[in-house]
Computed example of a mutant assay.
Amino acid sequence: MVAETEGTAALADALYARIRSVLRPALPPSADIRHVGATAIPGCLTKGDLDLVVRVDAADFPTAEACLAARFARNAGSIRTADFAAFADDGQPLPLGIQLTVKGGPFDVFHHFADALRGDARLLERYNTLKTRCDGLPMDAYRAEKARFIAGVLDRLR
């Protein structure tokens, strides 16, 4: 983990703007494209990657999935369902992850978690502490710890 820096944030913001400008006209009109990863949260520790979520109406999911699959590799380490798909592109200035979700579906949570971190300095501090504590652990262990933390936050938001 590295501390979010102005340089990393600026690079993430620029890449987000570029990817959004390419995807916006290609995706269905219901698409809501958001920057949701650590680089979207001021003060959040980050691996230095860019995470986006594309939220679409259920009827538009197949079209949006085909659009993203034509432009990006599928994230082989992620699940794929009728209302969720993940894509990746490590050839960008920052590694890029894109999550496609159906609005209101079971995986439509990424923006809620990002909003919670932006709105609660103590929660962000706890999240950064978790990231620091997990630094150096195998990625599976880190992801499991992070998933438990995120689930706890989302449970409290419901």
Score class of each variant (00 low, 15 high):
R34M: 10
F84R: 14
G119W: 05
N75G: 07
A73N: 11
A38G: 09
P28T: 10
A114R: 03
A64N: 08
C134T: 15
F72D: 00
G91N: 12
T101G: 02
A114H: 05
G97V: 01
R55G: 03
L117C: 09
V53C: 15
C134Q: 14
R122D: 15
L130N: 09
A86K: 13
T129W: 15
A114P: 04
E125V: 08
P106D: 13
A70G: 10
A116D: 01
E65C: 10
F61E: 05
D120Y: 06
E125F: 11
G91Q: 13
L96K: 06
R133E: 11
T132P: 00
A86P: 13
L50S: 03
A121V: 06
G97K: 14
A86M: 10
S78I: 04
D108Y: 10
A66F: 04
H35T: 01
A69R: 14
H112I: 08
V36D: 11
G43C: 07
R55A: 12
F84A: 11
A86R: 11
A69G: 01
A121C: 04
Q99R: 11
A85V: 00
I79Y: 00
P95I: 05
P106V: 13
L130D: 02
D115Q: 14
T132W: 09
L123A: 07
P42F: 13
Q99C: 07
A31T: 08
Y127G: 00
R74S: 08
R55P: 02
I79W: 04
H112L: 14
G37W: 00
G105F: 09
N128C: 07
T129L: 15
C67E: 05
R55E: 07
A59W: 00
C67F: 04
A66W: 04
A64P: 12
A86H: 08
A88K: 12
I33F: 06
A86Y: 05
G105M: 08
L45T: 04
I79F: 02
R80C: 10
E125D: 12
R55F: 06
A26N: 06
F61Y: 12
E125S: 09
T63N: 05
G48F: 03
L52A: 11
G91K: 10
L45W: 15
L123F: 06
A76Y: 03
F107E: 13
K47T: 14
A59D: 00
V53E: 15
R133I: 09
V53F: 08
F84D: 10
P93T: 07
N128K: 14
R74F: 02
R71V: 08
L45R: 14
A26V: 11
S78L: 09
V53H: 11
K103V: 14
D32F: 13
D49K: 03
H112E: 15
A31K: 09
K103A: 10
T101H: 11
P93I: 03
V109R: 15
G43E: 12
V56C: 08
F107L: 02
A69D: 00
R80D: 10
A64H: 02
L52P: 04
R34P: 08
